[in-house]
Amino acid sequence: MTTAAQRQVLDQGDIARSLTRIAHEIVERTKGADDVVLLGIPTRGAHLARRLHRKLAEITGHELPVGTLDITMYRDDLRLKPARALEHTEIPADGIDGKLVVLVDDVLFSGRTIRAALDALADHGRPRAVQLAVLVDRGHRELPIRADYVGKNLPTSLRESVKVKLDEKDGVDAVLLGGSGESNASSEGQSTLKGPSN
């Protein structure tokens, strides 16, 4: 899938170090991460959430609840594209009421995915607070949403595409910056870049 126009901005080591740092920041900011629940947004956010879960277990010595949250049915662009297949939602057994939910996603772009995730979350319970961890923040927000934990701030132009590849899904760990809208840009990347092509 890698084309000549794509440039690698993060490699496997960079991604691992970013996640380690985010894990430490979560423990620091939440004073021990005792009531933290990690929820990954499928598909790559879910893989990142599981990686953070492993790192947090090493740091804190106990296993935090981890799950996935599919946001497809809550998207604001459902009507603009063909109906798509759903991903799996798995809320930890103890639920999210009164907990500190950390949402995990790969790329933060327009903020619309996170808006949908907040709506989805409200139908599952009432967390004490919600925070957001992303591997890459590429800017160009269309909603008043920001990340609490960022792996890398990556200033981009709207013409560029950001593609996160993870070993669990793509067989390799990398963050690629493409010259123009690739069809396999990450979900947030698609919403604005590919708007007219739907």
């Binding site: 594209k81 063909p82 990450s186």
Partner: peptide, 25 residues
């Protein structure tokens, strides 16, 4: 009902293979 009405066009088509690939996320 979701697959017929949820999107701009129904997902139940013969070309469902490539849409699921593109919307892998």
């Amino acid at each position: 009902l979701y697959l017929l009405l949820g999107g701009s066009e129904p997902a139940i088509t013969t070309s469902s293979a490539n849409t699921s690939e593109e919307n892998g996320k």
